[in-house]
Amino acid sequence: MSGNVKAWKEQRIKDKVLWIQVPGELDHHSAERICREADALVRERDIREIVFDFSETVFCDSSGIGMLMGRYKMMKALGGTVRAVQVQERVSRLLMLSGVMKLIPVEAKQGGMENEQK
């Protein structure tokens, strides 16, 4: 319930990389919106990679897993890639349990803030 709407404003495209700030709580409600908007951008623009920034995400359920797997399949079909960065421990556990880590590179959250992307 923590500022989902505002968090989703945070998306940008640079050098064919779509960067998405995942909201604090990633459930069916917020995942659906991210999928819709990300898919529209991938259709309209030449995107080679989607980077999901999980630095603010403290809650995630299987809908978030569905979101990642769906974007992975879509980008793979287009010859692109998907990554998850700044993933906190709780979310990391879910990604591990679901097996999504075998498909998508996942980087744990470090001390510093988003120096991941140029």
Partner: peptide, 14 residues
């Protein structure tokens, strides 16, 4: 078609 991960019950049980 809804891109469900099929892991809802798995998570409940876990």
């Amino acid at each position: 078609e809804l891109e469900r991960s099929g892991m809802g019950f798995l998570f409940m049980e876990a």
